[in-house]
Amino acid sequence: MSLFAVFLIGIGLSMDAFAVSVCKGLALEKYKWRYSTVAGIYFGIFQAAMPLIGFFLGERFKDYISAIDHWIAFVLLGIIGLNMIRESRNKEESCPIYPNQDKAFSPKAMIPLAVATSIDALAVGITFAFLHVRILPAVLLIGVTTFTISFAGVRIGNIFGSRFKSKAELAGGIILILMGFRILIEHLGGV
């Protein structure tokens, strides 16, 4: 898998973190750069750590399922992508307002969000093991991509509001589904 393909997967995975970052920015009365930095660090680290954990889990089992690994990658990316598309259409979800802005970016507030937005990356890491992806460059690229997108998301949310939240989740879902199709087609000998 090329670094460009990993970059696209990183963009797709980071869209949940972007949506949460937009919500965080929307809830701010007074924007500070450190809020963007905190969001970028939490989301970037967790988005990089989860595929690494998934990769090591996948490495343990890849010998047993190497004949169908491309189907597993296709199904996992498809499920994650469809879930993101479904979430993008959910109109009931709203951004919480925090009376204390600093508490909104505290570890107590950020760690559960970072874990929740990076669970999908765990499954992607498993597919990386099956596809023999060089894991260190991949997780670094995903982490940096997520940091950048989350950093920008807080500011964008503060300036523009939640207008981009559902569009980001939709785009992320579509990217992951397309990458799943690409992996399947490559392994079936189509490209």
Score class of each variant (00 low, 15 high):
182 R>L: 05
80 I>F: 13
59 E>I: 08
3 L>R: 03
140 L>G: 03
113 L>N: 06
107 P>G: 04
86 R>M: 10
36 S>C: 10
95 C>L: 14
144 V>P: 12
57 L>C: 08
62 K>C: 13
14 S>D: 04
153 G>M: 11
50 M>E: 05
110 M>R: 02
138 A>Y: 01
108 K>V: 15
177 I>D: 02
167 K>A: 13
106 S>R: 02
13 L>M: 15
1 M>K: 02
140 L>M: 12
37 T>N: 09
5 A>E: 02
115 V>Q: 06
100 N>M: 12
17 A>L: 00
154 V>D: 02
14 S>H: 08
181 F>K: 00
20 V>M: 03
150 S>V: 04
175 I>M: 03
137 P>Y: 06
114 A>S: 11
87 E>D: 12
31 Y>D: 15
48 A>Q: 09
14 S>A: 14
158 N>V: 10
45 I>N: 03
19 A>T: 02
24 K>C: 02
134 R>N: 15
96 P>C: 04
147 F>N: 01
25 G>Q: 03
61 F>V: 14
53 I>L: 14
187 H>M: 03
167 K>V: 15
151 F>M: 05
146 T>Y: 07
74 F>H: 10
127 T>Y: 09
178 L>C: 11
187 H>A: 04
116 A>G: 05
152 A>W: 04
117 T>R: 06
69 D>Y: 11
191 V>W: 00
50 M>P: 10
97 I>K: 09
12 G>F: 03
189 G>K: 00
124 V>G: 10
91 K>P: 10
170 L>V: 09
61 F>S: 08
106 S>N: 03
28 L>R: 09
97 I>G: 05
9 I>K: 00
125 G>F: 06
4 F>S: 06
175 I>V: 10
171 A>S: 04
21 S>F: 04
124 V>H: 09
118 S>A: 13
143 G>M: 00
160 F>S: 11
48 A>T: 08
68 I>G: 13
82 L>I: 12
52 L>E: 07
184 L>Y: 00
140 L>A: 13
61 F>W: 15
167 K>S: 14
